[in-house]
Design a protein around this nucleic acid. Structure first.
Lengths: 347, 347
DNA sequence: AAAGCGAACCCAAACGATTGGGCAAACAAC
DNA sequence: GTTGTTTGCCCAATCGTTTGGGTTCGCTTT
């Protein structure tokens, strides 16, 4: 908020220099250089005067000019499937916060989980000359990441991981395991999974972690009981309907790898005359703020979404500094609520 | 995606000009000027060659250099309370789409509905030299808008309106009226409103529209029956609890000015042993994708969120072109569902 | 044959910052 | 009194565009 009045041209280094009778390079060094070079550029008395005038005139450096010279924009591009997905939106909050704290700005674009659009949006961001990218929508079989990598574009992944590139994600495998342990302990033996999109590591890992632990515990999970789906309420409803239509008895518990899918499933179950938390257990994933507040509070695996966003920025900054960037796997935590609490555990 | 390989410096106008034996100004005019001046700059044969080489070398103009020269960044700043609010996130999708279609990029920041943070974030965006701002979080008593206005900063409002400045919003007054009509027709006479934040025009207009119509119909709405609240599930739950604790009989219908508040209220009502849609009606606002998919589908006033975002960009572009910018008031539509359908209307 | 004119280009000054090198004066060392 | 070093600056090139203004040529026109 330190611009000039009424769209009057902003004050420049030259303005300050002229007013002080100094050369603009001196002013530049005082205001923008590291301490050691700044001290060499001017006496402390001069430096003081420079800083005061800059403050008074509301000087703020022109980022375009700076970028042109330094070849860095201090901007990072963020691509997500859609910001109206609260999970990604929350991660983005972490991104924005940390980026701002490091004097970076962020462009966000929605790819709608479409590979062409991903590519297009990445292109737009690169044309904008962002310093690096955070991809929140990588597909398991993505070509884009390899292409970016071979072109030397700095990027990191968020939310979904990819074996070959640095990423900041929840430990989704562990998340799936937590749910398996919980449902098994509650006495369930016939379960189904609403598994999410086949191209998302979140879906694969949560489902995979669940299955592996479930089978280790002695359970069985036939393929028909794993229904791949969209990540939204609609997708959850459809998947639940499919589960109930399947031959054989209806399962006593459903694990949906996403809260919204879980909510959709709850709707379908209720429509079928089942009472969630009594006739059938439902567990979701991400523990979005809704889960605890639903009419029937939803058990869910809490993932540290904001922190995932923060770490993603940290990772990218490391990459930009040519430091090593180690993938972050953040610990999830199971929140047991009425939707899956049959009174066996706890209380 | 048309950058050089391996972080090699991008192709510039000079590169193209040298390779073609032309002056870079000629190349610039061919590639970036309006048709008439482009035609004056080179023969059509030359122009053709220029365009082909640009394509081949993957030329993409440096936006920083362009901005430095033209004093326009083709970037717009968007400030919202929080993107993890699905309503604002959806509006942002409209913003991004339309901005991109007009070759603008968007920076988004979360203000958390805090006035200091609003001011800070606006400052960051202006320091970035955005061409204009879209404010999605304006408070009824905001000083910021007046300050921006007097400083000549181009901006428009989105989601919430302010009498003095151009905005793109839902016609929230009409939305409130629709709910009043509906509940009255359903035979309700004792109602309460979960009214939202007192500083948001959305809350004020929806509540105001409801009250005015309700009283016009012959109903009464005592002040104790209007509970101001936060816009989230938590806020809705608290407000519903307060409504039930109030002296006198519990209302037979509740209008929550926000779907999330409505969901929180539904939780509280159920906890109190009431069945929503049978013992008590609940109507929400915005018709977020959740509403229809809830275990008890929620009646809600549909607001064209995406379109609000699109129009906001349109408005801002008008302002930037010094055209007149007329506030957009978009028509809402009531979606009646199980949560408020006692079988009086319809079927 | 001189003058006029359009076509097809080229020239160079910005825009606002960064940064490797100067360079003069003051002071110290020998 | 020469040499060397530090202090406190200034100079000027550079980043990639845009754009108001030439200049040169060939062709009419009179």
């Amino acid at each position: 908020m330190n611009q000039g009045q009424r769209n009057q041209p902003a004050v420049t280094l030259k303005d300050l220099a002229d007013e002080l009778g100094l050369h603009l390079s001196t002013v530049s060094r005082v205001l923008h250089s590291r301490d050691d070079v700044a001290r060499r550029a001017a006496s402390s008395a001069t430096a003081q005067k420079v800083r005061e005038l800059a403050q008074l005139r509301g000087y703020s450096p022109d980022p375009q000019a700076t970028s042109l010279r330094t070849r860095r924009t201090r901007a990072i591009g963020v691509i997500v499937p859609r910001l109206s997905d609260i999970v990604l939106a929350t991660m983005y909050e972490g991104v924005e916060e940390t980026a701002a704290a490091n004097n970076y700005s962020t462009f966000v674009m929605n790819s709608h989980d479409d590979q062409d659009e991903q590519r297009r949006k990445a292109g737009i961001m690169l044309a904008r000359r962002v310093d690096g990218l955070i991809l929140g929508d990588v597909h398991a079989d993505s070509d884009l990441v390899h292409e970016l990598s071979s072109r030397g574009v700095p990027f990191v992944l968020m939310n979904r991981r990819h074996p070959q590139y640095p990423s900041s994600t929840c430990d989704d495998v562990v998340g799936g395991e937590l749910v398996a342990d919980h449902l098994w302990a509650q006495g369930h033996r016939r379960v189904a999974v609403i598994a999410g999109e086949t191209y998302a590591s979140t879906a694969l890992d949560r489902t995979g972690g669940f299955r592996k632990r479930w089978e280790a515990l002695g359970g069985t999970l036939p393929d028909e009981s794993v229904v791949w789906s969209h990540f939204d309420t609609e997708g959850g409803r459809e998947a639940a309907e499919q589960i109930m239509l399947a031959p054989g008895p209806v399962p006593t518990a459903i694990f949906a790898v996403n809260d919204f899918a879980a909510i959709g499933a709850m709707g379908a179950l209720r429509a079928a005359g089942l009472t969630v938390g009594k006739d059938i257990a439902v567990v979701g994933f991400n523990d979005t703020s809704l889960a605890a507040q639903l009419p029937i509070p939803l058990s869910s695996v809490r993932s540290p979404m904001m922190e995932i966003g923060r770490r993603a920025v940290g990772l990218l900054l490391n990459v930009l500094d040519h430091h090593s960037a180690e993938s972050q796997l953040l610990e999830p935590q199971l929140m047991v609520r009425e939707s899956s609490d049959f009174g066996v555990e706890g209380s």
